[in-house]
Amino acid sequence: MSGTETMTWREYLSTDTITSGRQATAQRLYWGTRSFFSSPLAVFGLVVILLLAIMAIFAPWIATHDPLVQNLARDLEPPSAQNWLGTDEFGRDIFSRIVHGSRISLYIVMLVSVIVAPIGLVIGMTAGYFGGWTDRVLMRITDIFLSFPSLILALAFAAALGPGIENAVIAIALTAWPPIARLARAETLTTRAADYIAAARVSGAGAPRILWRHILPICIPSVVVRITLNMAGIMLTAAGLGFLGLGAQPPSPEWGAMTSAGRRFMIDSWWVVTMPGMAILIVALAFNLFGDGLRDLLDPRQSR
């Protein structure tokens, strides 16, 4: 705000004559946030995700029952004041199991995202920046992974690694990095020829420094958006693996596995299957809505 003491924050954030990079960033964030919060669907997504996080953190205090303790005297009870979402075939409280299951879902989604982002970024940026044979080889590998439908590849990996949450995470991560790599490569290709990169190179910056300091910041927004949008897919793939018995194993209250276990009792006790599936649907929808909103905020070029 150099030299314009009279300028208010509102003017600083809305003037057309931008004087610094910081002001440009501030303006973009301010208007982006405003548009994000003016979209009820995006806000709904954000709220659901926050609720999910709270539910996962405070699960033992929110749950009304122990998620694992069986009570065979009260099996397959319909939703009531005592068991809000009913009980399953072992008399366990479904609401409490869903609350505890949120930890597993969130754990898988976060872990996969944290693994996939750096792998995709490194491969994509390297391919895009160096070009030539490096690019050809790396992109060919990416294409091979992309030539499988992700669930089938994840299934094959999960079967090969053996069932369990950690293996499900590895299997999903192995199928989730290629789109990120593609995206990072595309972003790198468009910035590689920019004047400021040439300037950095002339002033003696090496490839790692250019990639880290100048190209990575350009890639981050679109990669973050992409990963957020992918989170819904990761949720669904993890639930699918759990449903097929390749993800989390039975006593654990993973939502997909719960749906699968409830199948046999579905005709007489609809809630056993309906409730966990509904939880998956709501959370996946929230990730999708939040991702759409975030795209308008961080990556306006891709929104329409």
Binding site: L236, A239, G240, T259, R263, T274, I280, L281, L285, N288
Partner: peptide
């Protein structure tokens, strides 16, 4: 968006139900 967010296996079970 709803279709993208629906777990297919669950939707199938709901359909059967």
């Amino acid at each position: 968006l709803l279709a993208y967010s629906t777990p297919t296996f669950w939707f199938g079970l709901m359909g059967l139900l």
